[in-house]
Every structure is written in C-alpha cells, then in structure tokens.
Design a protein around this nucleic acid. Sequence first.
DNA 1: AAGTGGATCTCGTTT
DNA 2: AAACGAGGTCCACTT
Lengths: 232, 232
Amino acid sequence: MRLVVARCQVDYAGRLTAHLPMATRVLMLKSDGSVLVHSDGGSYKPLNWMSPPCTVREGTTDDGQVEWTVTAKAPKGQTPDTLRILVEEILHDSEHDLGIDPGLQKDGVEKHLQELLAEHPATLSAGLTLVRREFPTAIGPVDLMCRDEAGLSVAVEIKRRGEIDGVEQLTRYLELLNRDPLLTTKGAVRGIFAAQEIKPQARVLAEDRGITCAVVDYDALRGLDNAEDRLF
Amino acid sequence: MRLVVARCQVDYAGRLTAHLPMATRVLMLKSDGSVLVHSDGGSYKPLNWMSPPCTVREGTTDDGQVEWTVTAKAPKGQTPDTLRILVEEILHDSEHDLGIDPGLQKDGVEKHLQELLAEHPATLSAGLTLVRREFPTAIGPVDLMCRDEAGLSVAVEIKRRGEIDGVEQLTRYLELLNRDPLLTTKGAVRGIFAAQEIKPQARVLAEDRGITCAVVDYDALRGLDNAEDRLF
DNA sequence: AAGTGGATCTCGTTT
DNA sequence: AAACGAGGTCCACTT
C-alpha cells in the first residue's frame, strides 16, 4: 500500500469519461494495482478509482511531469478502462506493508436480533417469557423457546428477512416439538415467525399454518435495550 | 485529512453490527469527521467506515490504549450508529491540508445533446438508426454507434463546439472501429462529426478525412423531443 | 424535503 | 461462470 498526497489531475475513460481538475488529493495505491483518488470530504466513495485487476504504469510526460496510467484488465473482446493521473507536485509519499487482512465479520442482524428478543420477548406477544435460547431439537436449535400467559409453549424463529424457507423451518420445528409430551401438557406448541421484514408469500404461508407473524422494529428494540442499560 | 496506518480493531454498530479483528490497516480521517478503514486490497469500498455528518472522539481505554469513537448524527428518535476503533500501535500518522476540491466533471452539456441525438439519429443523416450509446473502444466510448439504410456502421462524435481535437478523436475511433470485422461486413465504418457549431478548420480536416459534418440545431431537437412527449 | 432510478455500482448467494 | 438480489448502498435528479 502506497499513500501519496499530491497536486494532480485525473482523467478516466471507460463506461463514461470523467475529469478531475488539478488539485491536492490523496492517492491510495493498493498492492493489487488498484488506485483510489480521495478528496477531503464526501462519502466513502472515491472521486475516481480503478478496480482490480489492473496495472499501474509510471511514466513521465514531455514536460517531465510524473504520469500514472492505470489500465484495467479488459473483459474478453472489450476495451480496457484507463485512469490517467498527471502529478504536478508530490506532498507526501509513503509505503506500508499491511499484510493480509482477516476480513470483516458481519455478526448478522439475526444474531443480534435474537439477543435483543431474548431480553424482551414480550415485544413479540404480550406476557411472553423466555424459557431458553437455542432450544435444541433433533433437527437443530429453535431460536427462542418461550411460554405465554396461559402456560403454552411458544417456539420463535428469528430471521432478518422473513421468507418462505424460514416458515418451512419453523414448521418442521413445530412438528417435532408437538411430539414432546412435556411441551404440550397445556396444549399444542404455538409458533411465532419474527423478522424485520416479512415477505407477503411467507406471511400467507405462515398464517395458513397457524403461525403468528411478528415484524420486529430493530431500532426500537435497541433503544429499549440502551434505555435499560442506562438504568443499571 | 489525517492519514494513519495502525494495528487496530474496529467495531461497528448501526443498521448491522460488524467486527474487524486486530490487524494493520489504513485509517483515513477526513476533516468533516468521516472515517474510512481500508485494507490493502478489495475495491473502492472501505472495510468499514462512518459517513458524515459524524464526530470523532479520541479517548483511552483502561489499558491505556488509544480508542477512537465515531458517532453519527442520529436521525430523530433513533439510536446513533457508532464506529469504535481500538488502536494497538500507530505505524504512521500524518496530517494534510487538501483545500477544497473542484469536484468531478462528468461531461454534462454534451451529454444532453447525446441523449437528444440518440432519440433522433435520423436528424443527423436520413435513415440513420441507433445501435447503442457510449459504444466502447480501447481509447474511450464512441458517443453514438448507428447504422445507415445500407447497413453500414456509423460512428457519431458529439461536441458542443466542433474543433480540431474532436475530429482527431473521431478519427482515432474510426481507425480502431475499422479493425473490427463485425462492424465492417458491409463496408468501412462512416464517421459523423456532430456539433452545435463547427469551426472552419475542423470542418476542413473532417471532410479531408471523409468524415461528415452535422451542425446540430439544439433548439429544434428540443422542440422535436417536446412534441413527441406531448403526443404520448 | 421526500421519492425515484441509475451506478465505472459492490458484494454476496444461488443456479 | 453467469444471474439475481440486497445494500450501513451512494448519487443525482424529480416532485
């Protein structure tokens, strides 16, 4: 990774043509050949860039100015995109060995949602209390096992996006759970399908099978949680 | 703009939660408070980031480690997104004054002409039909690629003011396009140089090279377009 | 200000 | 490998 701060002008030709007038900018040259041109503002998107795979060629113009030409690997039969950086003055230039990056862990919302709903099961249905998280069955753990005011067992399946396969999953769980005499003493196990967003098809299927749909307000739950944290 | 290379760990909580294990990365702290965390690879998208408006607070943990907490301006009633950067070791740290950036030029006026002519290619030459806009070549996209009544390919270069360099540009495109057997089955690719105003020198050069000049009546084209809009 | 559609989209997952 | 959908989308333009 090479970090350069320079007065430069940038021209891009590819799907579109674009031009950056001479000004001071940050150039990030990654070891895979990709180049990012950033200004001091805006969002995470660079003013201009070249995505890998691509190659950087360093040259000089007739005037003796430094010129970087970044050429993308052309898709077969197509023409390569090019990024031309004309450097007027280099204000900073440093090279850094970052090593390989272990990469981003997206602790999906699903897991966080499960934690939050385990803390606040009553938001799903009034009077609901948690029995345990990750309640084991022969075909995998049920996200939340709860009990309602009437003492009935309630199995909760949590998804970020509620789609048909999630309903199928919960249905299979309910099938198994309803064979367990310990869970059905007061009556059949109820199912709640909880998600931030429930697709229409999934909702129809769920309701057809007597499964309750619960649209979860993630932000509200987080707020609820934070409010409690502040109390203690 | 502050550029930092550091061994750090990053945690994001917002629409989703995400975690970056301890590793060496580049941190870009822009003057609007926004922060970008980049690795040495991937595309222009940072591993993690915080978009403006947001604020950075520099603190120290109980262990004495540097910790940056970036907090987004929360939408009303909602909980703010946060980005926590735990810094283990700083390998590079520099501050740069970039000034304001003049911003990206995405060829604008010319673009509208291109749209209008793409809608009405026959105004350039009777019987002309559009094949595609921004037809790609190795040295940049041809504004319009068309076909005439005889089935010949026609490359159209559009300028607001037609000057010599525009003719040179179209000449380069034609040179490349005429090497493509798919475009030249019925004969050589023709060129049309279209502009609101064509300078005499450019006209001479174009005609010398067998390129047709077309003076575009911008107002008439707009009228034509509006008339069609009224019909449908 | 809110909504809409495109993007040099990027980034996953599925087919 | 291509196709499809979602995104902490971003971004410009419209209502």
